[in-house]
């Protein structure tokens, strides 16, 4: 029993999960039951997949020991590329493939430069953040492309899938992708390499793991998920703007960290990233419902990030201090 408690306390996503539960209860009471109503949940579920998909990719990358500040810009560049091509007469699927291809290339470049020149990914992706944002504006030509409703199959990505108009297709996309990435990290040999690479690089190298390649793949996954999430948001709003996703990079990092991912790499889980992203969305929404000045949103996210990390460290220390001998 003690052993189980100890293991639970050391789960990195515990603090986030507890906070999530607390906030749901608090907001539900403060909003007189509006918070968990269908109308409100519809709003939350519409936005959640977008933040959460970015967070999932960033979480995976952070576990491998790297960092991606360019996701917010990729979030805008992918749908912009796609929209410009569609307006230029390309078929939707080809345009989407090119858009995702751009994301893959950006992730690859982020990874290769970081690994080859042995520089912090913070710097590589900071540079890429500016470059990709600039490219977005250049590609748009200064005027947001206008896509007529029905010109692209948005329904497949953001259409409501139930009669009650509660759940959008994007929720399913997000769940499917999050489960796949979660299984990739937790249940495959590749996941074992990711964790070893981020957990202790010299050991991973000594055991013959191609750590450079592992990281590059994580960079690419992070980029593609950010681009895909950006596409979903642009489709939901049916507007393709060069300014989409500004600040998304830091929200994604905050989500990962709130969910227990360590900046040092190795520690963290996809579920944690999802919990972190959900918390951010709930706070945004709950604050509005509780009639708190919306300008406090970023303050709340910041405080939450610090609080979650401190809480996590504290819980983990408690867990570690529990005397359960490993000897027989």
């Amino acid at each position: 029993m003690r052993r189980l408690v100890k293991l639970a306390l050391q789960k990195p996503e515990l603090a986030g999960a507890l906070l999530l539960l607390t906030l749901v209860i608090v907001f539900q009471i403060r909003s007189d039951g509006v918070f968990l109503s269908v109308n409100n949940l519809r709003g939350i579920l519409g936005l959640l997949p977008e933040t959460a998909l970015v967070a999932v990719g960033v979480t995976l990358l952070m576990i491998s020991g790297e960092f991606d500040l360019s996701v917010g810009s990729v979030f805008a560049l992918m749908p912009m590329t796609m929209a410009v091509l569609v307006v230029g007469g390309w078929p939707f699927w080809a345009a989407m493939a090119v858009g995702l291809g751009v994301c893959i290339v950006i992730g690859f470049v982020n990874g290769i430069i970081t690994i080859r020149y042995d520089i912090p990914s913070f710097i590589t992706t900071l540079g890429m953040m500016f470059m990709a944002r600039s490219l977005t504006v250049v590609v748009s030509g200064g005027f947001p492309p206008r896509i007529r409703p029905g010109e692209i199959p948005s329904r497949l990505f953001v259409g409501f899938i139930d009669d009650g108009n509660l759940i959008r297709a994007s929720v399913l996309w997000f769940l499917g992708i999050a489960i796949i990435i979660g299984l990739l990290l937790g249940k495959t040999n590749f996941g074992n390499w990711v964790r070893a690479t981020g957990g202790f690089l010299p050991a991973a190298k000594a055991m013959g793991i191609p750590t450079g390649r592992v990281k590059v793949v994580c960079f690419m996954i992070s980029s593609v998920l950010a681009g895909f999430a950006g596409m979903i948001q642009s489709m939901r709003l049916n507007s393709f703007l060069p300014s989409t996703g500004e600040g998304m990079e830091l929200q994604a990092v905050a989500a990962a960290v709130i969910g227990g991912t360590s900046l040092m790499g190795g520690v963290g889980s996809i579920l944690g990233g999802v919990i972190g992203a959900t918390l951010i969305r709930l706070i945004d929404n709950g604050m509005v419902l509780s009639q708190i000045d919306a300008n406090w949103f970023r303050f709340a996210i910041g405080a939450l990030t610090i609080f979650a990390v401190v809480g996590n460290a504290w819980l983990r220390k408690k867990g570690r201090a529990m005397k359960v001998s490993v000897d027989k």
């Binding site: 390499w193 070893a196 050991a203 520690v267």
Partner: peptide, 15 residues
Amino acid sequence: SMVPIMTIARNMFIG
């Protein structure tokens, strides 16, 4: 030779 944040079973088979 070992990754401290991983379990014994996971470490045993890295790579």
